[in-house]
Design a protein around this nucleic acid. Structure first.
Length: 341
DNA sequence: CGCATTTGACCGGCGC
DNA sequence: GCGCCGGTCAAATGCG
C-alpha cells in the first residue's frame, strides 16, 4: 500500500543518507580537520571569522571547521538526478595521495544529504483529506470574515517557473547557525526537517531540527541561503548559497566573512574572503577538494572563500596559538550544476 | 515606528 | 490524479 511504498522510498533515502553520512564523517574525522603541517601555497587558513558575530560561544565551539559539502539534495529540484562522480572523474579531481580517505569515496553527490532526513508518511494528511476539503469549501465564506484565520488573501504570483541559480554549499562546524558572511540576510522561512533524529527542542536558541531560509536584503539581489544542522553531527552547520550577489558586501566587519560578489573572479582585493560566484565555478562535474598542490584545484575551482585575501604569512599553528585563527579546512568540495532549464 | 523574525498556509514539482 | 514535500509567501508578532 502507500505505507510500503513510502517505506521503500525511505529506505532508499536512508541508505543513501548513510552512505553520505559515512563519508562526511570520514571527512570530518580525516586529517584535514587539522591542517597539514605544510599547507599548500594556495591554501590558507581562515581566521575565526564566525565567532565575532556569534552569540557567546560555548566552550565546545572552539573549532570552526569549514567543509564544502554536498548539496545535491539541498536545493536541487525535487527528483532531480543527482550527480554521481564516476571513479574516473574522481581520479581526475582527487589524485590526492594526501587524502586517501577521499579516494575511498564513491558517492559524492548523494540523493540525500545528512540533513535531509528520510521523510515519513504524514498519514495525518491523508486521513479525512476529502472531508477536510469539503469543509474548507463550505467554510470558505465564513473564513473570509475571519481575517485572523486567513494568513493569505491575495493570490500568489508564481506564474513563472523559477530559475534555479547555481548553488554552493559548505559545512561549518559551529554552534552558530547563521554565520555572519558580511551580507545582510532576512529570514523568510523555516521548515522542520522531517524525521530528524535531532532534538526538536531549541537549544541555545537554535532549533537543531529546523531548516532556515534566508534572502539577501539588498534590493534586486536574489541571493538566498539555506542553513540547517547536520543530522549526523549537530555541531555542523550546512549552509547552502544560491545565486550571486550583485552588490558589494554591505558590511565587512573586522573578522567577519565578506562574501563578495566580485565578478572579476576569486581573490578579490578586500579584507575578507570571497565566495566563488556561480558562473565562475560552473563545471561539468562535482569537485573535491584536495590539499595536494598538484591538483591545480585553485586554478580550476578557486574558492577564494577558502583563501584569505591577504595570504597569511605566519604559520597556522602560530596563529592558532594566538587564538586568532582557527582552522577552516575544506575536506570536500562539491559543486553541482544548477538545473539547466 | 520600522525592520526582522516567526509561523502557518499555500504553491508547484515530482514520485507513485 | 493524488499526495508528499521543499520552498515561499505574508500576516502576525517581536524587538530595538
Amino acid at each position: 500500500m502507500r505505507i510500503s511504498s513510502v517505506e521503500k522510498r525511505e529506505e532508499k533515502r536512508e541508505l543513501a543518507r548513510i552512505t553520505l553520512k559515512t563519508e562526511n564523517f570520514v571527512m570530518a574525522n580525516s586529517t584535514f580537520i587539522t591542517p597539514p603541517p605544510t599547507p599548500p601555497s594556495d591554501f590558507v587558513h581562515m581566521p575565526n571569522v564566525f565567532s565575532l558575530s556569534a552569540p557567546p560561544p560555548p566552550p565546545t565551539s572552539s573549532i570552526f571547521d569549514m567543509m564544502p559539502c554536498d548539496i545535491s539534495a539541498g536545493w536541487r529540484s525535487k527528483g532531480g538526478n543527482p550527480i554521481v562522480v564516476s571513479p574516473q572523474q574522481q581520479q581526475s579531481f582527487v589524485p590526492s595521495p594526501a587524502s586517501p580517505v577521499l579516494e575511498t569515496s564513491e558517492v559524492l553527490n548523494n540523493p540525500a544529504t545528512p540533513n535531509s532526513s528520510a521523510s515519513i508518511s504524514s498519514s495525518s494528511n491523508e486521513v479525512g483529506e476529502d472531508a477536510l476539503q469539503q469543509v474548507k469549501a463550505e467554510d470558505q465564506e465564513e473564513e473570509q470574515d475571519q481575517d485572523k484565520n486567513k494568513k493569505r488573501l491575495k493570490p500568489k504570483k508564481r506564474s513563472q517557473k523559477r530559475l534555479r541559480e547555481p548553488r554552493f554549499a559548505f559545512m561549518t562546524k559551529s554552534e552558530v547557525d547563521h554565520l555572519d558572511d558580511g551580507y545582510r540576510w532576512r529570514k523568510y522561512g523555516q521548515k522542520a526537517v522531517k524525521n530528524s533524529p535531532l532534538s526538536k527542542e531549541v537549544i541555545n536558541g537554535y532549533c537543531f531540527s529546523c531548516r532556515s531560509y534566508y534572502r539577501c536584503t539588498s534590493a534586486g539581489c536574489g541571493v538566498k541561503k539555506r542553513v540547517e544542522r547536520s543530522s549526523d553531527d549537530p555541531s555542523i552547520v550546512v549552509t547552502t548559497y544560491e545565486g550571486q550577489h550583485i552588490h558589494p558586501s554591505p558590511v565587512t566587519p573586522r573578522g567577519s566573512i565578506g562574501f563578495l560578489a566580485d565578478s572579476s573572479g576569486f581573490g578579490a582585493a578586500t579584507s575578507s574572503f570571497v565566495i566563488p560566484q556561480p558562473h565562475e565555478y560552473q563545471q561539468q562535474h562535482a569537485y573535491l577538494y584536495s590539499p595536494s598542490p598538484s591538483l591545480s584545484f585553485t586554478s580550476r575551482f578557486s574558492p577564494s572563500f577558502l583563501h584569505q585575501e591577504k595570504r597569511l604569512e605566519s604559520p597556522p599553528s602560530l596563529l592558532r596559538d594566538h587564538g586568532l585563527l582557527q582552522d577552516i579546512v575544506p575536506s570536500q568540495m562539491i559543486r553541482k550544476e544548477a538545473e539547466e532549464e
